[in-house]
Design a protein around this nucleic acid. Structure first.
Lengths: 212, 212
DNA sequence: CGCCGATTTGAGCCGAATCAAGTTTCGTGG
DNA sequence: CCACGAAACTTGATTCGGCTCAAATCGGCG
């Protein structure tokens, strides 16, 4: 983007801090603004009338948050961890998109990335075992959280509770817990304090996830 | 689009007839062209190394088929029924997208529609029972195939075999068959000749799908 | 009519859900 | 710093929905 455009954006932007567990946009609510994730993790979820819930996406910095064209969000966006976002009023973005094709290109490109991720996850939800699902989740987090990974081992803090992980994987809390224990006993991961995970060999985790 | 652009497109387009079961683009293959579906149904699927398969989307006329920005397809596209498509060489479209923002807008808009559909389906895959999954599938087909529905009842031919339905729902053929039988016995649907389905009351099918 | 693939139906099994305790972690205030 | 309580997580026993394996039936087609 041109510096003039950036300046224009900056003038109308507001920074917002969202605590873990707080909603950014509710399913079916009116979307008054777009935003950029500065840090933290945001979960996108859907809920059925009887309360069953499914997390349909995770967004990390510096992802874009919002829904072009439609004013109504089809998902709930909620901070999974403490999160900072930078908000832009909807009209400003809509106008800039009209003026700057490369901005629309950028948004289009992210939509396609999210579509690819959603479809990958459909394979996980529909065809993988509980074991593979949990490994897939850990693999996903490992590859998204740790920016500069040193070779084949990684360390990170889980941004999601067991309940959230279960909602992401279409499993129950208990099954997630059991499969984590199994991965630990198989020496594929090490867990400290429930949330901190060490992956000695990414290759083995990737294999456990059924990715080759 | 302007008529000049349409004429330009027309000059370089080729019509192609694809028989049921034939591949349009393979997973990981190079995408040499974009296309429009003129009629028929195309299924998008992903496969794991060991052969497990998941259908991640269905495309109906007049959907667009192709993957902007990336030259490699992340899914396999295969005709579910006999299908006619209209193909455009990739360079032509890429150039026109650069010149006509409204074309990019159009493509962007379809990507978002597909993303919404993918996320809806994630909820189905992750959280619904076999019964609800099958009902959800029938509901999806009913709302997409039959353009002008007369009130609350519908009739259509299934574009997918039981095996394809199973791959779409993350179930086995046998389970799909049993649930179809159950829906039939519950008078929610009538089946004739395996493929032809009558829905006397869409409301009840919708309810069986868990959609309210 | 008879064949072959697609679909249905049946019996038994298994993986993940459910229900029910434990145990660990962590925040809070004494 | 420790005691307490609540929430998050783990573990165990049992149940059940959907899978597997096997056989019968249906439907389209030569």
């Amino acid at each position: 983007m041109s510096s003039a455009q950036l300046a224009e954006l900056n003038k109308h932007s507001t920074r917002r801090k969202v605590e873990a567990g707080n909603e950014v946009i509710g399913q079916g609510e009116n979307v008054g603004s777009y935003s950029n994730i500065l840090n933290g993790v945001v979960k996108l979820s859907k809920m059925m009338a009887d309360g069953r819930q499914q997390i349909v996406g995770l967004q990390f910095a510096p992802d874009f948050l919002g829904r072009p064209f439609l004013t109504e969000s089809s998902v709930t966006a909620e901070a999974a961890t403490e999160t900072e976002i930078c908000c832009f009023p909807r009209p400003i973005i809509d106008r800039m998109v009209g003026e700057a094709p490369e901005l629309e290109r950028k948004l289009h490109s992210q939509s396609l990335k999210e579509l690819d991720e959603a479809r990958d996850w459909m394979l996980t939800l529909g065809r993988k075992t509980a074991q593979e699902k949990v490994a897939s989740f850990l693999y996903l987090i490992a590859t998204h959280i740790d920016p500069e990974r040193s070779g084949n081992s990684t360390t990170f803090d889980l941004p999601l509770s067991r309940a959230d992980i279960a909602d992401f994987l279409g499993l129950t809390i208990e099954t997630v817990s059991r499969q984590m224990t199994k991965l630990r006993k198989d020496n594929i991961i090490v867990i400290e304090n429930n949330r901190h995970v060490i992956v000695p060999e990414m290759r083995r985790l990737r294999y456990a996830a059924g990715n080759d």
